[in-house]
Nucleic acid binder design. Structure first.
Length: 408
DNA sequence: TCTGGGGTCCTAGGACCC
DNA sequence: TCTGGGGTCCTAGGACCC
């Protein structure tokens, strides 16, 4: 089989760069990429986690996902900026549109990463490194932020390559470069090797990607079972997954939040869950889908996680029906401990709602009239804000949510 | 004022059937 | 008066990603 040519484009410090660009556009003089800075949530509501860091902050030891408190101890003059997600989506879309010029074989892997499959374009593009440099420079000149471009013969290698040295760089990791460029790297650098896996590998004296590539299969199987094949293939730079140009269909829709304080007040928890149900079912209705499985997950003060799911007889997407299931699920699983974080997940999503024909029409078999009412409510809420209109049965709770939200 | 949020995929173990 | 075993489906929990 002919060797593929895959590009991986990765925005350098995406959130921080994008906020920097936004500020400069608004006339600010200071480029926050050039000072010790981070993008992070609000500490007062316990969302104080580092989402992105500037190179200087990174050099002082600041890590993504650590607390602001801890980051400031490492770097006392650190400047903190709030995330601007709407703006990030705009910038991400601009970059995606630009990249679409080169091939329809493009996959949006995350808000700040894309894969391009350029296999079979050798007549169009004589030199792939030159092309990668053009893409990198075009993005910098047109949009004001920098990217890394990784080139490889598959997605894994392209992604590993884009991670080599940053920022504003092009790297290659072709199949014949795997031994020299990838094998010497520490095992933690391998995609999909996280903390748990790397700890086990280190105790087995497997310290580099090369060590893993050459490790004995049977030995590894004792510790990693079915995961062994995947790990060994990755370490050898083997990956057959395709660049998927489709708009990815969600397998599930979820929402969760850390509460401002640990809470065991049932009424308050109900309020949060109702607000979350509103939001998550609105998304579901927007994609014109129905969910068959409803799960509630919560984390207590000790950071122990519990989850419980329920299957619906008929797939639903109305706030009222899903909310009933959410509450039932909570009641069946909650140990009345103090809740730190709570959320909902809708899965088993379907486009068509196949209803079983029942002689006894139950309350659950919602008809098209109810769908119409729901649509009208969505439109009104869209225009005048969430919870403007809702079924009377849940209106009171809804009102108090609004009240609570403004108090936060 | 120590530990976010939205996803995907995998696995162990239980229930149930034949 | 003994308690196998394969198959399937489902659930809770966990690992990992950005």
């Amino acid at each position: 089989m002919k060797e593929r040519i895959i590009f991986h484009i990765d925005v350098n410090n995406a959130f921080l760069s994008w906020t920097a660009v936004h500020r400069l556009k608004n006339g600010e003089k200071l480029d926050i990429r050039k000072i010790p800075s981070i993008i992070a949530g609000d500490e007062k509501t316990r969302h104080g986690i580092v989402l992105a860091k500037s190179p200087i902050a990174k050099n002082m030891g600041v890590k993504t996902a650590e607390t602001i408190y801890s980051a400031k101890r490492k770097c006392p003059n650190l400047k903190v900026f709030p995330p601007e997600f709407d703006w990030y989506y705009e910038e991400s879309n601009k970059m995606y549109k630009y990249l679409c010029k080169y091939t329809p074989q493009i996959e949006r892997f995350s808000i700040d990463e894309c894969f391009l499959d350029l296999t079979g374009t050798s007549l169009l593009y004589k030199n792939y490194e030159e092309l990668a440099n053009k893409i990198k420079n075009d993005i910098k000149n047109n949009f004001g932020f920098t990217v890394n471009v990784g080139i490889g013969n598959n997605k894994l290698c392209a992604k590993m390559a884009s991670d080599f040295t940053k920022p504003d760089k092009v790297h290659t990791l072709y199949n014949n470069e795997i031994k020299t460029k990838m094998w010497p790297l520490p095992i933690e650098d391998l995609f999909m090797v996280g903390k748990k896996t790397s700890t086990i590998l280190r105790t087995l004296n497997i310290n580099t990607i090369g060590d893993l590539a050459n490790a004995n299969d049977n030995y590894l199987k004792r510790y990693f079972k079915n995961q062994t094949r995947f790990l060994k293939d990755s370490a050898n730079g083997i990956d057959y997954t395709k660049v998927a140009p489709r708009i990815p269909k969600n397998e599930s829709i979820s929402i969760s939040e850390t509460l401002p304080y640990d809470c065991d007040d049932y009424k308050k928890i109900e309020e949060v869950l109702f607000r979350q149900t509103e939001e998550v079912t609105r998304l579901l209705r927007e994609q014109k889908e129905y969910a068959k499985t409803v799960a509630v997950t919560y984390k207590n003060s000790c950071f122990e996680t519990y989850s419980h799911q329920l299957k619906l007889n008929v797939p639903q997407n109305s706030t009222t029906e899903i909310y009933k299931a959410v509450i039932n699920s909570l009641k069946e699983s909650w140990k009345e401990d103090k809740i730190r974080n709570i959320g909902i997940r809708l899965s088993d999503l379907t486009k068509n709602r196949v209803e079983q024909i029942s002689i006894f029409k139950t309350e659950e078999t919602v008809n098209s009239k109810d769908d119409l009412i729901q649509e009208t409510i969505d439109n009104i809420n869209k225009k005048y804000g969430t919870a403007s209109v809702m079924p009377a049965s849940i209106k009171i709770i809804g009102r108090s949510i609004k009240h609570k939200k403004t108090k936060q």
